[in-house]
Nucleic acid binder design. Structure first.
Length: 234
DNA sequence: ACCCAGGTGGCCC
DNA sequence: GGGCCACATGGG
């Protein structure tokens, strides 16, 4: 794409960011006290309402099971009891425990040390863990490790498609698009992703509530797509 | 009684 | 590369 076109796309992505920020305010994500809590939340969150993840985290804390050594040493039936509320209870406890064991082996459970490598190396290491796909890996990198990667989730895909920014759900394609057109800034990446989630929960639902949409800019762009002017950026 | 939730891994072609 | 499926609880 020509530099001028990249510039226009960049301006539009930043304009939408400003609109979202005006509409919903700073989200201050990720909602966690420590990097480790980000990791636990990311592993339990998959395909589950956040409310239930919070309950599971509270339960684990109350049981004294909230650091890598404790979880790595816990028996699966015990872990299962505490995370059951987060669903998928046959896989999540096993993956959580295995991940903590890996953290211990890799860096003695020291997360600062774990993340202190080139992004690509940490990302590959995360993706090699059972139950860690691209979104979970990038959530951990961005919100726990402070690495500048843009997180793509189902909400990002839904909103982006409706706006007409892309016509695909290919994770890497969409991630590259955001990272290409935004400044490489951890703060912006964190806030943008959180704002997209806020927007999806508020009005950009499976059945959109466009009449109540406080971010008219998005609707304007959406109308362009409705007239067949959408373009997928390669 | 549905549908949905901040996915992932295992299939298949 | 893409499409479909099971996984499991809890809330609307």
């Amino acid at each position: 794409m020509a530099p001028a076109a990249i510039g226009r796309r960049m301006n539009r992505m930043r304009a939408v960011y400003e609109r979202l920020l005006d509409a919903y305010g700073p989200q201050g994500w990720w909602p966690a006290d420590t990097p480790f809590e980000v990791i636990v939340g990311a592993l339990l969150m998959q395909q589950t309402a956040w409310r239930n993840v919070e309950a599971a985290i509270r339960d684990l804390k109350a049981a004294g099971l909230f650091d890598p050594p404790a979880i790595a040493a816990a028996r699966i039936p015990i872990l299962r009891r505490h995370v059951r509320v987060a669903g998928l209870f046959r896989t999540k406890p096993v993956r959580l425990k295995a991940f903590c064991r890996h953290l211990l082996e890799r860096s003695g459970g020291d997360l600062a040390r774990y993340f202190d490598r080139p992004i690509d190396e940490v990302r590959a290491d995360l993706l090699a863990q059972e139950g860690v796909g691209p979104e979970t890996a990038d959530s951990i990198l961005l919100y726990a490790g402070g690495h500048p990667v843009f997180v793509v989730d189902a909400y990002t895909v839904r909103i982006g498609r409706r706006i007409g920014w892309f016509d695909t759900d290919a994770y890497e394609t969409i991630r590259r698009q955001f990272e290409t057109h935004l400044p490489r800034d951890v703060g912006v990446y964190r806030e943008y992703h959180a704002l997209l989630v806020a927007h999806a929960k508020a009005v950009c639902r499976p059945k959109p509530r466009c009449a109540e949409c406080p971010v008219q800019t998005l609707c304007d762009v959406g109308r362009r797509r409705a007239r067949g002017r959408a373009r997928t950026i390669k």
